[in-house]
């Protein structure tokens, strides 16, 4: 899935479009749709064993994603989250966090 995202970004770059910047909500929305929506839902409400993201601050999301990326055990879903976080850049974490905190109040 992430590979597809990189391919897409590569295509965008090849077309000369300005790349996404940190805190880019639109870029975060794209990444969320790729990697997060199937468990956390389109409204960020969570479902089944997957927690809601509503009401979370950008700092909270950044901190959690950085923990997962660093290989820290955060909770019982770490095994699922860690592979997703492992490939995220600092900018992508910032974009995702900006989208989640703004969209899911």
């Amino acid at each position: 899935m992430h590979r597809q995202l990189f391919l897409m970004i590569g295509t965008v770059l090849a077309l000369g479009v300005v790349p996404a910047q940190a805190d880019d909500v639109a870029a975060g929305e794209t990444l969320y749709a790729e990697s997060c929506v199937s468990c956390h839902g389109s409204a960020g409400r969570g479902m089944a064993s997957f927690p809601a993201l509503t009401g979370r601050s950008a700092d909270y999301i950044v901190e959690r994603l950085e923990q997962y990326r660093a290989g820290e055990r955060v909770g019982s879903n770490t095994g699922l989250m860690a592979p997703h976080a492992a490939e995220l850049s600092d900018d992508e974490i910032a974009n995702l966090s900006a989208y989640i905190s703004e969209e899911f109040q």
Binding site: S49, G75, S76, N77, G79, L80
Partner: peptide, 12 residues
């Protein structure tokens, strides 16, 4: 009780 497993929270 929670346990040391994937989805390891109580209620699984």
């Amino acid at each position: 009780e929670d346990s040391d497993h994937p989805f390891g929270d109580a209620g699984a």
